[in-house]
Nucleic acid binder design. Structure first.
Lengths: 232, 232
DNA sequence: CGTATCATTGAAATTTTTCAAATCTTGTGG
DNA sequence: CCACAAGATTTGAAAAATTTCAATGATACG
């Protein structure tokens, strides 16, 4: 956790909520924000607890998760750099926020941040538009979770990750290779499956030539068309 | 579809988004709004199509649904009176909006409505807060859809409906009786199950004495504690 | 009152999970 | 640099849950 960062140097200055602020406004916000680093597995917010912070994610990936009283878990959202973290105007958090890998955040105390939001219409509007988009995304994922088969879930998820990753490819339209940012267990939690089912479906997709697996994390999309056909 | 309605007579005047407007502002909005009635099964918005309207739901229940290309359906949200309908700032709709029973709406053309939102900070803030709440709800439902058993889904859903319904009860803490606002098929679409599974779980809950079924629609919560135990 | 729709129930099939055991990775300390 | 331990992944076999297919029964509406 370090202080004294300058917003103009921020990697997500133009993509986070702050993009709606001019330099003067940004300075005001700057005094509120604190840089913070989370290690893999470390949580920022716990479901059921008071959540005194909001944040912008600067680097890394966070998961939002819910659990049943008896411990079944479901990841209900993934957050990427420039995404907004937290829930303004709610005293207790509904979901746990955890880092999947090392992550950097710009953290604000919730109350003062709410006041900034209320004083800056453009920022509030941007948050509204993002929230509407997140809601659409969450609803689309309800269809996935409830109605797709394990194979369809996996294929679709791999395509998502491939599109988001800046993986390398040998030729312009050749196979993409990248590292999975999640373990099998985390993928299972995202897709509403078990580790074993995830592993079996990956093995099957590999056997069919749609993908290639190298080590635990490496993956190559070898036949995107086949993966797309499997995803639907 | 009738015109010339007065907002002050509106059943949801104090609960819909309009609650954020004073009488003068409301008059301006009034000239934009059109009353419209939907019949059971009739759609207001189709997924994938341009959606030129937003609305406030005045009476009845609407479903928001998504479908896979091969026709599997999932209800991703239910809307009740005073809820906001539609998706400002999106050209095409992601979800289909259909009336479960007869429903009354106050419909606005989307563009002008967006301008009203942009000009009325309090209304925009109220929509933001509702959207944040809907997002929490959608995420909570992701846990339900992905991780609960058929019995748990049914029990939880019946408790929800019971709490929302103004069903009658013989004594203050006695059993509640009400009519299910959905068919078995619609419940299946909400819970991510098949009609047959819904029917079987209801029969089982009845056999165990947790509920009673009368005809296709009538239901009595006979042992709430047992239903709660089954829901988790 | 008949007909179309909705609901229930049974039996078989399918999918996914659970339980159990290897096997592979990865990071660490010798 | 290698061996090893801890954790992660894969794979198999059996069990469980849900779906699918099929038939029958109930309800409601014209």
């Amino acid at each position: 956790m370090t202080a004294a960062h300058i917003c103009s140097d921020c990697a997500v200055r133009d993509r986070a909520l702050c993009a709606s602020l001019d330099d003067a406004e940004l300075n005001a916000l700057n005094t509120l924000g604190q840089r913070r680093t989370l290690q893999r597995g470390q949580a920022l917010i716990w479901a059921g607890e008071e959540s005194p912070v909001c944040a912008n994610l600067i680097s890394g990936v966070l998961k939002l998760s819910a659990t049943t009283p008896d411990g079944r878990e479901q990841v209900v959202g993934l957050l990427y750099p420039a995404d907004f973290v937290g829930r303004p105007w709610a005293n207790t958090a509904d979901f746990t926020v955890t880092a999947l890998g090392e992550a950097e955040l710009c953290v604000f105390p919730r109350g003062p941040f709410e006041r900034v939001l209320e004083d800056h219409v453009r920022m509030e509007r941007l948050l509204l538009q993002r929230t509407l988009a997140s809601l659409d995304e969450a609803r689309a994922r309800m269809l996935t979770l409830a109605r797709l088969s394990a194979r369809e879930k996996l294929a679709g998820f791999l395509l998502d990750l491939a599109d988001r990753s800046h993986g390398c490819r040998a030729t312009a339209f050749g196979p993409v290779t990248f590292d999975l940012p999640l373990t099998r267990g985390e993928m299972a939690d995202v897709l509403g499956l078990t580790i074993e089912t995830v592993s079996r479906q990956l093995s099957k997709l590999k056997a069919e030539g749609a993908i290639n697996l190298m080590g635990a994390r490496g993956i190559t999309i070898r036949d995107r068309a086949k993966l797309e056909a499997s995803s639907q």
